[in-house]
Amino acid sequence: MEVLSKNLNFLLDGLINTLLLSLSCLGIALVLGILAGVLQTSNHKALSLTMRGYAELFRGLPILITLFLVFFLLPELGVHVNSYISAMIALSLWSSANISVAVRGAIQSIPKAQTEASVALGLSTVQTMRYVILPQAVRRMLPSVIGLMSNLIQSTSLSVLIGNQDFLKSVQLVIERVELMEGLSVASQMYTLVLAVYFVICFPLSMLAKRLERSYR
């Protein structure tokens, strides 16, 4: 308990890092994912295939590998970013790929008649998407996006492995510091705290996703 109060600010900084990382990834991934998902349903063969390839690639690669690819290869291309930005890029790639698939599924689940009706009303393709299809599709993909959010928050813990100081990392630092300074091990309490904090954040999201899924069925 004393350890906790002494390091509270430090731990909170880590937690804020985790949450900021997850939220910014979600923001980027929503934009990219919706764009990629819409393009996947486009009639332009090359475009839709490329976008499908993008989704399959980043869904197929383990997140850790995407993370390492971004972190170690960007510098070789002359782009120097820190581990936080690397994690943001890698996780955005992964989650946008997942969102794009959810978007594609949602768009395809909207009856064709609606597109035909929009065309009959003289709406352009973009207008059809913007005013008719997407508003309905977004509602249908909401459960999977919320589920993904919970998954994303958990996955940000991987950024520890490239040196980002997120919540997990700050807990590890506290454990090490206490061990060095006071010679006592608080590993079990601190790791239990980590489990509890992640659970408190992710459990409501999962429940919400589950409830929404049930209500749309």
Binding site: Y191, F199, F203, S206
Partner: peptide, 23 residues
Amino acid sequence: VDLIRNTPLLVHVFYLYFVLPAL
């Protein structure tokens, strides 16, 4: 099920690897 699904796998790994030896 709820505990495992809502906490990161990396933390489970660290828990098993760093905490169990202490027990």
